[in-house]
């Protein structure tokens, strides 16, 4: 899932300040799962912004709506009938959602209400962890299913740096050393010697070799 967190309210208020008719647009997918931009959060943000406007005595129309997905055009076109009522969109989608909606309505400024964070998992209620870089060349098989690129602070592919102590990362004792996790996991599965070879440099061309990536699947096309 793509995770996100709401931007500071002051930053949002500054960005929406020039506009008088604002649609606060939630997204029911990833950002709803991480409690940043779903229907509830969208309702709260819209309510807070309306209250702030009232306190300042400003006449601003602030409505809310939550789409199932902002990053899929089929859902975004559901706004076709109401979009003309607004002079700005405040999106609680991830960066992809913000851009997809913006592309559908290029005449209307779109403002991001969230900071998109990472590809991650919901580890526990209220805890989300980054564990994938989307590198386009998955090597999880070699590392016991734990990604050293995403989860080691130095992206080390050949074992822990000298700062791994007691299973913790030197740069943040709150986070586990990815290499300790990898070694423990691979040992448990009986393949320690697999980690003894030198893992070659990462092929980053799969991520950024030809500019922004796209996936084309003819069998999926109209």
């Amino acid at each position: 899932m793509i995770t996100a967190e709401q931007k500071p309210l002051d930053e949002i208020r500054e960005m929406i300040a020039p506009y008088k008719r604002i649609l606060v647009l939630g997204c029911g997918s990833c950002v709803a799962e991480c409690a940043a931009g779903g229907e509830k959060e969208t309702g709260m943000l819209a309510s807070i912004l309306r209250m702030a406007a009232k306190m300042e005595g400003r006449e601003v129309l602030i409505n809310e709506k939550t789409l199932e997905r902002q990053c899929v055009k089929d859902f975004v076109i559901l706004l076709d009938d109401i979009i003309q009522d607004y002079d700005a969109l405040l999106s609680l989608g991830c960066g992809a959602g913000v851009q997809a909606v913006g592309d559908c309505f290029p005449e209307i400024p779109i403002i991001p209400a969230l900071n998109t964070e990472f590809l991650g998992e919901t580890k526990d209620q209220g805890l989300w962890l980054e564990n994938c870089l989307g590198c386009g060349d998955c090597k999880l098989y070699h590392f016991g299913g734990i990604c050293p690129l995403a989860r080691c602070s130095k992206h080390l592919l050949n074992g822990p740096c000298g700062g791994s102590v007691g299973g913790k990362c030197e740069i943040n004792p709150e986070i586990p050393c990815a290499w300790q996790l990898i070694i423990d996991r691979v040992e448990q599965q009986g393949g320690f010697e697999r980690l003894e070879g030198i893992f070659p440099p990462k092929d980053w061309s799969k991520k950024q070799g030809l500019g922004p990536r796209r996936i084309i699947r003819e069998d999926q096309q109209r």
Partner: peptide, 22 residues
Amino acid sequence: AANPFGDPFNFRLVRLAKKVAA
């Protein structure tokens, strides 16, 4: 460089061996 004092200890030698092999 090598740090004989980092964890996990059993992997410290692997790191050294890898550096030598490299």
